[in-house]
Design a protein around this nucleic acid. Structure first.
Lengths: 250, 250
DNA sequence: CGGCGTCCCTCTCAGGTTGAGAATTACTCT
DNA sequence: AGAGTAATTCTCAACCTGAGAGGGACGCCG
């Protein structure tokens, strides 16, 4: 039976109820470490566990709009601050038993944010905060959120290779070294500063010079660095490839 | 309130209910052209228009399971034939007005199939068939399916770069030239035969030799080709890159 | 203020990969 | 048998990458 026939002949409300939620894997970089926005649940199920921010999609809103709204609510941000956050759909999760209450399909989203202030507790008085992804209480994440986080992290690592989205973790102006720091943090290992510099400047549309310099050198010395802003490319050609790892799943 | 009490008193119908469907962008290669599985709708809305195969997710099945079931129903296939089809989640589509009847979120999937027999009309007597993707009646696809197909095609082109999934369009044994044909068909332009050959054999785990040869040379001459089967790599390192096109801003 | 260490930015060089063309050889078709 | 086709291998120049090094600007500490 397909959807058309079903709808033509049956009352939709008679069908077993299914709900749609959006969840957000929101990443940012704080103090050189990758952080994830999590909410501590104040109510069952999984009371006291950390969970991804999210909630039901409103009847009149698109999936991505819903995700952005949830992100705004949980971070307490709005306007310009939120507009600089990159948001994209990640994947949907719909195992029949993933939520003990009822059938819930979650459309997960992935967000890259510049360093944001600590979130404020929402109306349910749930605790919320940015937690470093190393040291995640992985066994204690609610529902299947550990899996969603894993998928989001892998997607983030991959996106940095072929898109300029690393700039979304930074402010409007940044140095090449700061950009390198994003890659090193997300990928989890150091990069060759000279080669990275050469590569970034050689990819058309990745960054463009503002003409300015930092006010000071680095905290421990070094010259003032040139400032750049994000270019207009949507894709990096050629891509920045992650150093080859011994992954080869066999 | 503990979790048991909470679940006992939980009323699912208190939350906005939305229907969930799975749709499948199923691709195959016939006579050197990329084909897409479509169903002609027998009832309104969009009566007479072509639509992606799909339907409601059953209460007890996972999203991907539902997609595989729909694909089996629409192609009339099962067992081994279907097991060789690659199926993955593509994206979810949930604009509030994408279906005129009610709020329906569709979790779209992407399938790569070897050449399959023509589908049989299902119980509703809707027409079904493999249509070449060039010459698609793009304005006549139902709902937002044209958009879903576009996304699926782009994903397919991209997947061929960094995964060995091109082999899923072929039988268990194939020649390098047949594999090159898959790439040329999906990417839409010819590749350098010598370079492709060198590259495929140099990527670890992409293909492995069966030791055999084709029975005959090509239809218009040429030597017998060596036969290969898919290797055990899940990812291609280094990837086969598409020839650089002019910056594609979607 | 002067010395030391840091770090931005550039350069070099060897090794690997790619794109383009071509040679070799084994076939099919007429 | 001859012409044409295509699988496979080679060559070569251009490009890209990883690794190391050096010049020079700058902060910190004594």
């Amino acid at each position: 039976m397909n959807e058309q026939d079903f709808l033509a002949g049956y009352d939709p409300s008679a069908y077993p109820s299914t709900a749609i939620t959006v969840d957000v894997v929101a990443l940012t970089i704080r103090e050189g470490a990758l952080h994830l926005l999590l909410i501590r649940r104040g109510q069952p199920p999984y009371q006291g566990h950390w969970a991804l921010p999210g909630g039901f999609v409103q009847p009149d809103e698109d999936l991505t709009t819903g995700a952005r709204r949830e992100l705004a609510e949980e971070t307490g941000l709005g306007g310009d601050r939120l507009r600089r956050v990159h948001l994209e759909q990640l994947a949907s999760y719909g195992a029949p038993d993933r939520d003990p209450r009822m059938r819930i399909v979650s459309v997960a989203h992935l967000a890259f944010a510049p360093d944001l202030p600590d979130p404020v507790a929402d109306s349910d008085a749930d605790e919320a905060g940015w937690l470093p992804v190393t040291a995640l209480p992985s066994r204690q994440l609610a529902f299947d959120h550990a899996r969603i986080v894993d998928d989001g992290l892998e997607r983030a690592r991959s996106k940095l290779e072929y898109t300029p989205l690393a700039t979304r973790f930074l402010g409007p102006e940044f140095t090449i070294a700061e950009l390198r720091g994003v890659y090193e943090t997300v990928w989890g290992h150091p990069l060759h500063a000279g080669n990275f510099h050469r590569k970034v400047l050689s990819v058309p549309g990745f960054v463009e010079s503002t003409g300015g310099n930092t006010e000071r050198g680095g905290a421990r010395g070094g010259p003032r660095a040139r400032l750049y802003r994000a270019g207009d490319a949507r894709l990096l050609h050629p891509a920045l490839l992650r150093p080859a790892r011994e992954e080869t799943v066999r």
